[in-house]
Computed example of a mutant assay.
Amino acid sequence: MDNSIWVANYTEQLDFILMGLFSQSKYPILLCVVIFVIFLMALSGNIMLILLIYSDAHLHTPMYFFISQLSLMDMIYISVIVPKMLMDQVMGKNKISAPECGMQMFLYLTVGGSEYFLLAAMAYDRYVAICHPLHYSTLMSHKMWLLLVSGCWFLGSVDGFMLTPITMTFPFCRSREIHHFFCEVPAVMKLSCSDTSLYETLMYLCCVLMLLIPVTIISSSYSFILLTIHRMNSAEGRKKAFMTCSSHMTVVILFYGTSTYSYMFPSSYHTSEKDMAVSIFYTILTPVLNPLIYSLRNKDVTGALKNLLNVESAFQRTMK
């Protein structure tokens, strides 16, 4: 009997407690409904964008292939975090086991890291399309699309495989309360009772590389793009190039800005409230904003949507 009680207590101690957003809110039910609506909008928007890209032959280009991959990453990103958070609120639970915490951490690190490099690949694609249009089909062949996207997923998984096991193997002998709404590395590391300064330094260097390499590619690509746009004689060509690039730069600023705060600012700048507010932006809001940015500001996508709706309405009239 005593042994079974010890096992039960030990198992209980392995669980983390996610304090979450709702404990900080005066209106948790309203907040829960709002997040659920945003989650549905993110899923439906990204699914629609992927279906449009794969169903319309005019969108079978590298740029739209990368956008479809971005939508896939956003769907995984928000699905890893939000359903668990909402279910906990509905069922009145806020516990997460160590394996579940580790899996959540691995998935968001992998997808987040992949998205860093995907945004760099998208910037390179725009650079080739605008600065070297005559060589575009050669430099951005179908094989190159697949190679770039595979490389993005691989580099993202390296981040997940490297940081997750180290983080989860530290001894946690302090409070098991994670002052966050998901198992983010900095929030989990605060619970460790051992010296994590060396690991935090290594994690900082890793994040610098994960951000520095893509940012260098993006900055270089857009520097050349802006020079090329400035030299264009056609006003229509300048407008089209600028609109395409401004959509991508909006996404880059949103994603990189919040990630830089979370992983590169010193711990003295961080509080639980600030960390959660910033995390809401890149884990919940960005996945719902990306399809809006790439669809509402893109004539090709809106044209594909109109064509799809026209085909459906014609089919319905035929059936009648």
Rank of each mutant, 00 (worst) to 15 (best):
L70S: 14
K84W: 04
F172K: 01
V208I: 13
Q104H: 06
H180T: 01
E12T: 08
T216D: 02
R297N: 15
S197F: 00
F181Q: 02
C32V: 01
V301H: 05
S192E: 01
L59F: 06
L209Y: 08
I253D: 04
M1Y: 07
Y54A: 05
L285G: 07
V288T: 10
V37N: 12
L52Q: 08
P186C: 09
F22E: 06
L209I: 05
R238I: 00
P133E: 05
L191S: 08
A277G: 12
M19I: 03
T164E: 09
I218R: 09
S220P: 01
L155C: 07
L211H: 15
E100R: 07
S268F: 06
Q316S: 11
K190F: 01
K239C: 10
I229G: 12
L198W: 03
A314W: 00
A129D: 08
T244R: 09
L146F: 07
C206V: 00
L163I: 09
M249D: 00
I50E: 03
V208H: 01
D2E: 13
S97I: 01
Y261T: 11
T110E: 03
M85F: 00
Y199C: 07
D195R: 10
T260I: 15
I53W: 01
V278F: 05
L30D: 00
F16Y: 11
F161Q: 08
T260N: 06
D300P: 02
M140R: 15
M91N: 15
L292C: 14
K299E: 14
A121P: 06
D74C: 15
C152G: 08
T110N: 10
L198M: 14
V252Q: 09
S234E: 11
R317E: 15
S272Q: 09
G112I: 04
D300N: 12
L285P: 04
M189T: 10
A98K: 15
L211Y: 03
D300S: 13
Q13K: 10
F172E: 01
V7A: 10
Y256Q: 13
S194A: 13
C152A: 05
Y77N: 11
A187V: 01
L18A: 11
F242R: 14
M75V: 08
A98L: 12
F161M: 13
L86H: 03
T201P: 00
P287R: 05
H248D: 11
S79V: 02
N46V: 06
S44P: 00
F66Y: 13
L107V: 10
Y27V: 08
L292W: 06
E100Q: 10
T244W: 00
Q13N: 12
M144Q: 14
G160V: 02
M87C: 10
H60S: 14
M140D: 03
S223G: 14
L226V: 02
A8R: 09
L198K: 14
A241D: 04
I81M: 04
K239V: 03
H248R: 02
G151A: 05
M48V: 07
K26E: 12
I76L: 15
M276W: 05
L59E: 07
S44V: 14
G113N: 03
K93F: 10
A98C: 07
A187T: 03
L118G: 06
T286S: 09
Q89E: 14
P28H: 02
S44Q: 04
D88T: 00
P171L: 02
M144T: 13
